[in-house]
Simulated assay, not measured.
Amino acid sequence: MKVGLFGANGRMGRVLIEALDLSDDAELSVATVRDDSPWVGLNVGELAGIGKKEIDCSALSSLSGSDADVMIDFTLPSVIESNLSWCVENTMPVVIGTTGLNDEQLAALDEAAKHIPIVFAANYSVGVNLMLSLVRQAASVLGETADIEITEAHHRFKQDAPSGTAMAIGEAIADELGRDLKTCAVYGREGKEPERDQGTIGFATVRAGDIVGEHTALFADIGERLEITHKASSRLTFAKGAVHAAKWLYGKQPGLYSMVDVLNLKL
C-alpha cells in the first residue's frame, strides 16, 4: 500500500518516514512540504536520519491523487482545512493526528468525513487508547466520590495545552459520568480559591526539555487514590500506530473513525 505524508519535515513527519521504512506491507510513496520550504528536493532518508532512500521531498502543490492510497497528516491546525479539501477533491482517505483544532476545524473534519474515510485521534499509541478504556472503568466506579485530576507533560516545543491526549482522557471521563467537559473542566488554579468542587475535572500542564509524552489520570478520594499513567519514550510508538491506522483505513467507507475502531477496543 502506498502512503503519502503531509508535512514530512515536521517532528512526527520525520518519524513517520522511519516507521514506513520499517513496515513490511506499507511504503512511503510521496512526502510533501510547503512550496517555499527549504526541504523541497531533500532526500527523505537524509531528512529522517536513516540513510538515503529513493524518494525526495516534494512541494505540496505538486501532489497528485495518484501518488498515494492513503495520506497521513500530522501538521498544524492552520493547514488542516486545506489538506482536508485536497483529500476530498481526490477521494483520498486520510489519517489525522493534528491536535489543537478549534470548533470550526472540527466541523470541517466532520464535513469531510461525509465524503472520505478519516481516522482522527489525539494519540495513536496502543497504550494511550487502552488508557481511555481504563479511565472510563475507573470513572464509573470512583467518579461520584473521587476528585479527578489529569496531568500531562510534553517537550518544550509543543504548542497546544492541555495536549489533545489529555483532553481525550478528560472527554472519556466526562462522558462516562454524564458531564460536559466544557463546563466542568478547570485548567489552572492560583491564589486563594473556594474549596474544590468535586464535580470538576482538573488539568495541569508541563512543558519541558524533550519529554515525548506523559499522561496521568488521578482519582483521589479520602484515604486512597488511583493513578492511571502512560509514558511514551519514543515518537516511533505513535508513528507505528498511525501507519497501522492507515493500513486499516484503506478501502473503508466514508466516515469519521478513531483508534477505538482501528484497535477494536470496547469502551
Rank of each mutant, 00 (worst) to 15 (best):
M1H: 15
M1R: 05
K2T: 06
V3K: 00
F6M: 04
G7W: 00
R11Y: 09
M12E: 09
G13R: 03
G13K: 01
A19F: 02
L20I: 11
S23F: 07
D25K: 11
A26I: 00
G41R: 03
L42W: 07
V44L: 06
G45W: 12
D56W: 02
C57L: 02
S58W: 10
A59Y: 14
S62K: 12
L63C: 08
S64V: 03
I72L: 09
T75W: 01
S82P: 02
S85H: 04
E89F: 02
E89M: 03
I96V: 00
I96S: 05
T98W: 05
T99S: 13
T99E: 12
G100T: 01
N102W: 04
E104D: 14
Q105S: 11
A108C: 11
D110P: 14
E111L: 15
E111N: 13
E111C: 10
A112F: 05
A112W: 08
H115W: 01
I116E: 00
I118W: 08
G127C: 08
V128A: 00
N129G: 04
N129R: 05
N129I: 10
L130S: 00
L130T: 03
M131D: 04
S133I: 05
L134N: 10
R136C: 07
Q137E: 11
A138D: 14
S140W: 07
L142W: 14
G143K: 14
T145Q: 13
I148Q: 15
E149Q: 15
E149H: 15
T151C: 11
H154Y: 09
K158F: 10
K158I: 14
D160L: 03
P162G: 15
G164I: 09
G164N: 10
A166Q: 09
A166M: 04
I169Y: 05
A172N: 01
A174P: 04
E176T: 08
L177R: 06
G178I: 07
R179S: 00
R179F: 00
R179M: 01
L181H: 01
Y187P: 05
G188F: 13
R196C: 00
D197E: 15
Q198I: 03
Q198Y: 06
G199I: 03
T200Q: 08
T200I: 05
I201F: 05
G202Q: 08
F203G: 11
A204L: 06
T205D: 06
A208Q: 12
A208R: 12
I211W: 04
I211S: 11
I211E: 15
V212L: 01
V212W: 01
D221H: 08
I222D: 13
I222V: 07
I222N: 14
G223F: 02
E224K: 14
T229S: 07
T237G: 08
F238H: 06
K240Y: 00
A242F: 02
A246N: 05
K247D: 01
Y250L: 14
G251D: 11
K252E: 15
P254N: 12
G255R: 10
Y257F: 11
S258K: 11
V260Q: 09
D261Q: 03
D261G: 02
N264F: 02
L265K: 09
K266E: 09
L267F: 15
L267Q: 12
